[in-house]
């Protein structure tokens, strides 16, 4: 027989402190193991080779980042216009328009962007013997824009439907026509509602623009991902990939910050 002193039951505060203590301990051990076991010389050479970093500038900004921004904005603009049109079609009185828009949205949300890009970059040129005008920019604008439009259409539709019906009724009661009420009253409010999800769409598109490398871009049309990959071949180092990744963050982190700010403001306005 062993005499066991039954452990004193912990109070809720003591238990919380214990759980937190264990979590910190695990974290500290993991960091310690990483610091002790990692080969720092190798890591420094592979990821932070300052000579290579020096070589990458300024092209990483003046060519690669610039092209990423151009591809993204062109595709986004295309997607915005088409997306708004599709959203209005989905809310139309005419059943045929609604059906068309629904089929479009379901199709382009369901297939990978990569496949659409292959279709416009290689499929259509080979099968129909015509190319999308505008070269690389034209192809990426159309392909990624078509995909983005499907998501943007759903965002717009949700935004317009989120504006209370009473807003339209009040506007019509003041004698505004339906289009006038849409433009002056409903769409401005819908736009506020959809600004955060729309900005998220832009972030996703920024990353998807890397798919352009598939089109076999030339030196002046390289964007960040392709630029990093070429430099990787040249220097046999992780450094260019890290630099390219950080360059993406220059775009996406501020956008993410904007989204959070907008969401916080909306939460306050309610």
């Amino acid at each position: 027989m062993t005499t066991t002193t039954r452990p004193r039951r912990l109070t809720r505060r003591q238990r919380a402190r214990l759980v937190r203590g264990v979590q910190y301990a695990v974290l500290a051990l993991a960091i310690l193991a990483f610091v002790l076991l990692a080969n720092w010389d190798q890591i420094g050479e592979a990821f932070f080779d300052t000579a290579i970093i020096g070589d990458l500038f300024p092209e990483v900004i003046t060519v690669a980042l610039k092209n990423t921004v151009i591809y993204t904005l062109c595709a986004f603009a295309f997607g915005l216009v088409l997306g708004l049109l599709l959203a209005l079609m989905r809310l139309s009185q005419v059943a045929a328009y609604r059906a068309l828009a629904t089929v479009y949205v379901e199709f382009f949300r369901g297939v990978p962007a990569l496949l659409v890009l292959i279709a416009f970059g290689y499929g259509i040129p080979v099968a129909l013997n015509t190319e999308v005008p505008g070269g690389v920019v034209g192809t990426i604008t159309v392909a990624l824009g078509l995909v983005a439009a499907a998501y943007i259409a759903e965002t717009f539709r949700a935004g317009i439907q989120a504006v209370p019906k009473g807003q339209m009724e009040a506007a019509r009661s003041l004698g505004m026509s339906h289009p006038r009420a849409m433009i002056s009253i409903v769409i401005p409010q819908a736009f506020r509602i959809i600004l955060p999800p729309l900005t998220n769409e832009l972030i996703i598109l920024t990353k998807d623009s890397s798919l352009v490398y598939l089109l076999g871009v030339t030196l002046p049309t390289r964007e960040l991902a392709k630029f990093g990959r070429d430099a990787l071949n040249q220097y046999v180092s992780m450094t260019p990939i890290l630099v390219a990744g950080l360059a993406y963050l220059i775009i996406t982190v501020p956008l993410g910050y904007v989204v959070r700010r907008l969401e916080a403001e909306q939460a306050k306005a309610r």
Binding site: G166, E169, L174, M176, P188, Q189
Partner: peptide, 20 residues
Amino acid sequence: IDAVRRRIGMVFQQFNLFPH
């Protein structure tokens, strides 16, 4: 109908002011 509504004021239970 827009011309008719111009001459009729309407006040709603939920006010329906334009929040923006």
